[in-house]
């Protein structure tokens, strides 16, 4: 049987790697036919910058650059994986789930924003041959894969914690109720040891 405690950190590290690589890969490309008369302008975007072909000056920093937050969550997942391998599950499992959730949230919002941008440029009132196009590229797929693998890894990290978690809850402030069904058992604060007490009073 596969050891979940080993698989979870591996998946978290893989997810972090996919996220880091995906952030630097092109996520989508928009092409504008008819740019400058008869040419075509192609803009390639990753989570950090947007580059134009043919180039228009230096690559522009992306307005909504999501690269930095994605790298932060990737680092958190690696930290969680290291602590999982050191059997510090009580710290690592929540961090893994929080980081994987945050990465999933960022990727979800990014994909929705790209979808909205695609709908927006397709609605432009231009001639059919000059209609811009938006193509989803490998970076987006890597980010989606990173989010999914991260969630699975974080879930497995929680499963590794199950034996501790499934124990019956103990309320520290509550009165301990002892079992009285068996005749051999004694009630709490039960019968004092008579002999000793008598010895003390004497």
């Amino acid at each position: 049987m596969i050891d979940r405690r080993r698989i979870a950190p591996i998946l978290l590290v893989v997810a972090a790697g996919l996220a880091a690589v995906g952030s630097f890969e092109d996520t989508y490309r928009t092409s504008y036919p008819g740019y400058g008369g008869s040419g075509e302008q192609v803009l390639s975007t990753n989570l950090w910058i947007v580059t134009a072909d043919p180039p228009v000056g230096l690559p522009q920093e992306l307005y909504n650059a999501a690269g930095f937050p994605v790298i932060i969550t990737a680092v958190l997942m690696v930290v969680a994986a290291v602590f999982l391998m050191r059997r510090r599950t009580s710290f690592a499992a929540p961090v893994a789930m929080g980081a994987a959730g945050a990465l999933a949230g960022m990727v979800l919002l990014y994909v929705l924003q790209v979808r909205r941008e695609k709908a927006a440029i397709l609605s432009w009132p231009v001639a059919e041959e000059e209609k811009p196009e938006l193509s989803i590229l490998g970076g987006t797929y890597l980010l989606v894969a990173a989010a999914l693998v991260g969630l699975v890894g974080a879930a497995l990290a929680q499963r590794g914690q199950q034996p501790e978690e499934t124990e019956e809850e103990v309320d520290e402030e509550a009165v301990v109720v002892h079992q009285l069904d068996d005749d051999d058992d004694t009630p709490p604060f039960g019968i004092a040891i008579i002999g000793e007490e008598q010895q003390e009073t004497r």
């Binding site: 307005y63 650059a65 789930m97 959730g101």
Partner: peptide, 21 residues
């Protein structure tokens, strides 16, 4: 925890988007 992470990620990206605008 998962929901809090999701929400934090969405909020962070949303703030970044506003700054971009």
């Amino acid at each position: 925890l998962l929901g809090a992470g999701l929400l934090a990620g969405v909020a962070w990206s949303a703030v970044t988007s506003v700054q971009g605008i």
